[in-house]
Design a protein around this nucleic acid. Structure first.
Lengths: 210, 210
DNA sequence: AACCCACTACCTACTGGTAGGTAGGCACCT
DNA sequence: AGGTGCCTACCTACCAGTAGGTAGTGGGTT
């Protein structure tokens, strides 16, 4: 939690080798998973040798942990911004959904990484992913519950609904290679993403507004 | 010889070693992925040495391929049965959804395997997963389209809807370890599965029936 | 001088896969 | 009955390659 502070010099022009390593690591881990990625792969992507990489990060696990923490804090920050926006009823649901889509669109690699971690049950992480997201999950469920009780949204089980929504949105990005084959088109082009987002939101509105 | 008691009194039904290997391989690959699983892990789970495993399967890739093919044909068979049932409109949608839930409940490992393959874009497979499921996908989309046009179901983009449904249903099973942490309960108990299935189906019915 | 940072060279552990051998079962012979 | 071949199913020992990680070197900057 307290590790959110980052040096972050990054005066635009040159990213530090450290940051370049993190960037490349995200790509590799998202693409081929933790076990499927070797430190040599990452180092080669940056243009250095493995021992040089290990000069910046003590171990593969350390690198992965730091990278994941960075992603998670970025995610939480953006979600919190969306959650804090002044809206209510369905409008707020739609705002959060759109924020989620925007977040995923900006960095689809994050999504695949998250999905892999969810699949593995956080085996490569010291932290428990679910427990970190739990407060957010509970808050969202509570919001939905009150809105449903007030008759603003249709009565459904909030927790199951959230899991369904989580799966519906995440999947389009995490399984993009597979979706490509289904729709015979690039899933992650901006226009296709918007089309899918609109479709999902229409779907949810149909289900949730009385 | 005293190391491993392999005699295994053939009390009635005994699965062949080959089948035992396949069973264990599904478990391991679902749990830790292709790269995360070594042939030693699988062999140890069966109670034999790696070379003995390779006596039954030419290579790791062969084993994985055969296992996946078996799963896929099982899946397709069961889906086809559900699709062939005599029903129409929303009833048919619900039938297929329930068939999907039943299939996943019977073999949650299959789901995680599929998800991993979707994530990797079928990198470990000779076949293209999407192209195999494509006919099913197209048929489902066409069914939805005609039902929508007839006014039996609400007008939504069938293809995006299918992808959303696919993600919503698959996720509950594939990300079960993560869901456990969110709901603070075992996601894959029969009662929780039924509860979630009912929730998803209610949700879809709300969205789809005019 | 000291400090970075990247390098080469090397380590151990483990990977998928191979070589060669052994124990036991079954069919077919005298 | 007792060989004989041949087969399946397993074993130990080993291979080359690669994994993550360490030690020590040496040039550049300050």
């Amino acid at each position: 939690m307290a590790l959110l502070d980052r040096t972050e010099p990054d005066e635009g022009e040159t990213r530090s080798t450290r940051d370049l390593i993190l960037d490349e690591a995200v790509r590799c881990f998202a693409e081929r998973g933790y076990e499927g990625t070797s430190l040599n792969d990452i180092a080669a992507g940056v243009g250095i040798r493995r021992p040089s990489l290990l000069h910046h990060f003590a171990s593969k696990e350390t690198l992965y942990g730091e990278l994941f923490e960075r992603i998670l804090s970025d995610w939480l920050e953006r979600v919190n911004i969306a959650v804090a926006l002044d809206a209510s009823g369905w409008d707020k649901v739609e705002l959060v959904l759109r924020a989620g889509f925007a977040l995923f669109e900006d960095n689809p690699d994050y999504v695949r990484l998250m999905r892999r971690e969810a699949l593995d049950g956080g085996a490569h992480l010291g932290i428990d992913l679910a427990s970190v997201l739990r407060p957010l999950f509970d808050a969202a469920a509570e919001y939905l519950r009150t809105q449903m009780e007030a008759g603003v949204l249709r009565q459904l089980d909030p927790r199951h609904l959230l899991i369904t929504g989580y799966g519906a949105i995440l999947t389009y990005f995490s399984d993009a290679p597979f979706v490509n084959g289904l729709i015979d088109d690039e899933a992650l082009t901006p226009s296709n993403i918007r089309e899918h987002a609109d479709s999902v939101i229409t779907f949810f509105r149909s289900a949730l507004t009385p």
